[in-house]
Computed example of a mutant assay.
Amino acid sequence: MIIKLSKLLLIGIDAHSKNNVACFLDQDGHTIIKSIEFENNLPGAQILEEKICALMESGHYDSLKIATEAASLYHVHLLDFLSSSEKISKYDVEIYQLNPKLTSGFKKAYADKNKTDHIDAFIIADRLRFGRLPNPYYYNQPYIPLRRLTRYRFHLIESITREKNYFLLHLFLKYSSFSTLKPFSNTFGATSLAVILEDFSLDDFANKSIEDLVDFVSHHGKSHFNDPDKIAKKVKQVAKESYRIRPALANSVNLILTTSWQNIKTMTKSLKEVDKAIAVELKAFPNTLESVKGIGPVYSAGIFAEIGNIKNFASHNALAKFAGLTWRQNESGNFKAEITKMTKTGNKYLR
């Protein structure tokens, strides 16, 4: 009986915005040809496709593994092209997008190697040889559009939070006691912003009568405050206790606060539009997550988009590892650490 051994071609691709580099190894880790550089566009991808097919035929390979790092979004078009290629699909092919942490940790074994695109492509190809790979990448995964939206929402939330902190930092320059005395429950409410953004100096507010301040608060609050007199006194106290900003700096701070608030409003409006788009995309999928108390459409969309097909996970432990919600053991001899750190090596969006 003759057993035919499978020949495997391994391709590692280091993807960038302008050019990509591909390295070609056999299953023993030997370089087949010199790594090639090609443009990260459709003609460049077609050149790589032809090179792969030529190598598969000339080397009599019958299986193929291709991988890139999930570095920003520069790898997405190339992976979609390769995974949908009819020319490549006739071979036994598996395509992967690797978490950069997988390859960065693996690269430590090559302490003598430099940091170049060609060497990075080699590391990615060599990592394929050692197995323990994530689930393969498939073209036209139905949840990818939803994932892009939920991740953009994540980006917006982070940006809004960062901008609000920037706003509050400069608020201290204008009214140093505002955050301490908290005249309003919501610093970003309409009346609070009227106090912050109006072209009044500290002395203007300090010299106003309580009656005038009550009128100011009632007008901007549309008479919704239960105790405008109390708020007016707090505003007056803020004005009296805050540092006086020098005039040369005041104009700059006022401009920064005004434009920063415009940024917050714009991003908040975008957030509402994204939430609507997420709700529309989510309707295309069966969704039972919202039956769990505390999980609404946005959170359920985020969870679903990151997990994808739950059948890809053999157990709840596999899913926890994918999210990075696991804790490393720390043992040596008779010692066993009681406190260990969460790995956080998985999907940060899901976590």
Rank of each mutant, 00 (worst) to 15 (best):
L197M: 11
L197Y: 10
P136N: 12
S185I: 08
N140P: 00
R153M: 05
F178T: 05
P142C: 05
S176V: 09
H155I: 03
L146T: 03
S185T: 10
L169Y: 09
F167M: 03
H170V: 00
V195T: 12
G189Q: 05
T191F: 03
Y166I: 01
Y175H: 13
Y152N: 13
L193S: 06
F172P: 00
F154E: 14
K164H: 01
V195G: 06
N165E: 08
F167K: 00
R162C: 09
I160G: 05
Y175Q: 08
N186F: 06
I144E: 13
L149S: 04
I196H: 05
L173R: 12
S185P: 01
G189N: 07
L197K: 11
F188I: 00
S159G: 03
L193D: 05
V195R: 07
Y166G: 00
S192Q: 09
F178D: 06
H155Y: 14
S192C: 05
F188E: 00
K164G: 05
I196V: 13
T187G: 04
N165A: 11
S159A: 14
S176A: 10
S185C: 04
G189M: 06
F167I: 02
K164D: 02
F178A: 06
R153W: 02
L156F: 02
S185Y: 04
S179M: 15
R153A: 01
E158Q: 15
S176R: 09
L193Y: 07
R148Q: 14
R162Q: 13
R162E: 10
E163Q: 11
T150R: 01
K164F: 02
I157P: 00
F188G: 02
T161N: 08
L169G: 06
I196K: 08
E163K: 14
L197R: 08
R147F: 07
A190V: 14
H170L: 08
T187Y: 12
T187H: 13
T150S: 09
L168V: 00
F184L: 11
S185N: 12
S176H: 10
K174A: 01
F167C: 01
A190S: 15
P136Q: 11
S176E: 11
T150L: 06
S192M: 08
K182T: 15
I160R: 01
F184E: 08
L149N: 06
T191M: 04
N140S: 15
R151E: 10
L193W: 07
L181V: 13
L156C: 02
P136S: 11
E158S: 13
E158Y: 08
Y166C: 03
G189R: 08
L171Y: 02
N165H: 14
Y175S: 09
